[in-house]
Amino acid sequence: MIENSHLRRPIARGRAAVLCLVTLALSGCGLVNTESPFWATVAAIRGGSDTSPPVDRAHVDNLPYASMLAWFDDTKPSFIVLGQVQNGRLFWYSAGQQVIVTRGPYVIQTAGLGRDLTAVQFTKGSVESPLNLIGQERQRSLDARGEGRFAWELRCTYSSAGRENVVILERPMELSKVRETCQQTEGKPIENTYWGDPQTGLIWKSQQVLLPGMAPLNIEILKPFG
């Protein structure tokens, strides 16, 4: 389960929130069959120690599903498996029945995390890799329905932070690092970081603040979709 040590409040409504999010987001499409091999794979991984990932490289490579690790700072990583794809949105599920929805490298919805991101609207409509946005500005807005906050406006600029050697679950990579600085209408700027392959534009690793005042969520892609 993905824990947020900076919140430390019960997530008793997490499972109900997951079901509501998935049902609404899929516009009437049914949930993944919880008796399927997919759910058996997800349920089998319940987390490792506080310092080590819950899976190894051989296990990930042998699975037929795209997968990633996700964690908040000071918490152990959780193994997250891609369960559904719809209109460019990827729905990732944890063993604790939490959901992370991504579009490109960006997290756009969550359920079961304590504070949840309801929606992200991109001003230009399209989603671009941060690697292609160096020196540019983009705008997006955030919704947090549970907090009664809508259209939380962010104006984001992108700057190169050079190249960095990164190891993702035993696999070394040399990736380009991009910093995203987002200005709010109120409050301090939000800092996000992305590490990606300059040849393909794929973001393998990121650190994203999902909502203002929230601890950053770390994501490492173990096996990409497609």
Rank of each mutant, 00 (worst) to 15 (best):
E128F: 09
T75S: 14
N87L: 14
S129H: 04
A70D: 08
D116K: 04
Q109T: 03
S67L: 04
P105V: 06
E147P: 05
S141H: 06
L113H: 07
P77T: 05
A70C: 07
R103D: 07
N87V: 13
I100P: 01
R103V: 08
G146A: 12
P105D: 01
G146L: 06
I108Y: 05
Q84R: 12
Q86I: 15
W71D: 08
Q86E: 12
V81F: 03
E147F: 14
Y106D: 08
Y93A: 01
G112E: 05
N87P: 09
D116G: 12
T123L: 10
V81E: 00
I108R: 00
Q121Y: 10
T102P: 10
Q109R: 12
L142S: 02
D116Q: 10
T110M: 03
D73Y: 04
V85K: 12
F72P: 06
L154F: 03
S78H: 02
A119C: 10
I108K: 02
S126Q: 13
D74H: 10
W71P: 03
S129P: 13
T118A: 12
W92Q: 00
Q97Y: 13
S141K: 10
N132R: 15
S78N: 09
G148K: 05
T102K: 04
V99P: 05
W92T: 01
R140W: 09
L133T: 11
S94T: 15
A95E: 15
R89Y: 12
Q98I: 07
Y93R: 02
R115W: 14
L142W: 05
R103T: 10
G96V: 11
G112W: 04
V120D: 00
L117F: 12
N132F: 07
D73N: 14
I100K: 00
Q97P: 05
L69I: 06
V107P: 06
D74R: 13
T118N: 01
E128L: 11
L69G: 09
T110C: 03
E137F: 10
Q121V: 13
F122W: 13
G88F: 05
T123K: 14
R115S: 08
A119Y: 07
L113F: 11
L90M: 15
A95F: 15
Q97G: 04
